[in-house]
């Protein structure tokens, strides 16, 4: 599967490869490159799927779907249309939203926000190093989210985690459609303004 022990070839250090290089290798059916990309993004994909569904089993299923999709579709990634992170998050959101449309997610299970789903619970398999490494960028994004008025944040959450459209959000919150459009636009513009810097959205 991974490195072939019988091979005399030295093992390739995939950690030095960029995300785009890994996708090129995955497109050539390099399974080790898929393993390396998995190591890089599994926490992001699993965490987002878990936060959106509130169910570990569904989060695992989504994570598996996402990386098999990456395996099959690596050749369709276009660097000029966004970062690899953006592409992977988009596949994850699509798979999760699909679970909602097929009514496999119990909406009461998730808090529909970026906050801890079940505060105080013991999280299995948490990687402390990664937690520390990512905490600064997470704090910065959470700080930006915290500046949003709560009604904007609620509308944004319904779109981000459940894939609701303007009309679906308006129906769900029983608010006028125009109000929802304004809230979504204002929330996104404010986050864009706060988080975009000269390196793009490089928040590390």
């Amino acid at each position: 599967m991974m490195a072939n022990p019988a091979s005399s070839q030295p093992a390739i250090d995939y950690s030095v490869h960029s995300d785009t290089d890994l996708l090129l290798k995955i497109d050539q059916a390099d399974e080790s490159a898929l393993g390396a990309l998995y190591d890089r993004y599994q926490r992001l994909v699993y965490s987002l799927a878990y936060q959106s569904t509130g169910e570990p089993g569904l989060a695992e299923e989504i994570t598996q779907d996402v990386f098999l999709r990456v395996w099959e579709k690596a050749g369709s990634y276009r660097a000029d249309q966004g970062k690899v992170l953006t592409w992977i998050v988009s596949i994850t959101r699509n798979r999760t939203i699909d679970m909602y449309r097929r009514q496999r997610v119990r909406p009461e299970n998730n808090s529909l926000d970026w906050e801890e789903l079940h505060p105080g619970e013991q999280r299995d398999g948490i990687n402390i190093e990664a937690e520390v490494e990512n905490s600064l960028q997470r704090q910065r994004i959470q700080a930006a989210l915290a500046t949003l008025p709560s009604e904007q944040r609620v509308a944004l959450s319904l779109a981000f985690f459940r894939g609701y459209t303007h009309s679906e959000i308006a129906a769900s919150l029983q608010e006028p459609l125009g109000t929802i459009k304004t809230r979504i636009r204002a929330a996104m513009q404010k986050l864009h303004q706060q988080l975009l810097n000269e390196d793009g959205f490089n928040v590390e």
């Binding site: 936060q51 994570t63 992170l85 988009s90 789903l117 948490i126 990512n134 981000f160 975009l196």
Partner: peptide
Amino acid sequence: ASYQDLVGVLALAVPVRSA
């Protein structure tokens, strides 16, 4: 493209869990 990258970045704000 810039707004799509913002959507990607928002995913980094969810509490971290490992598969």
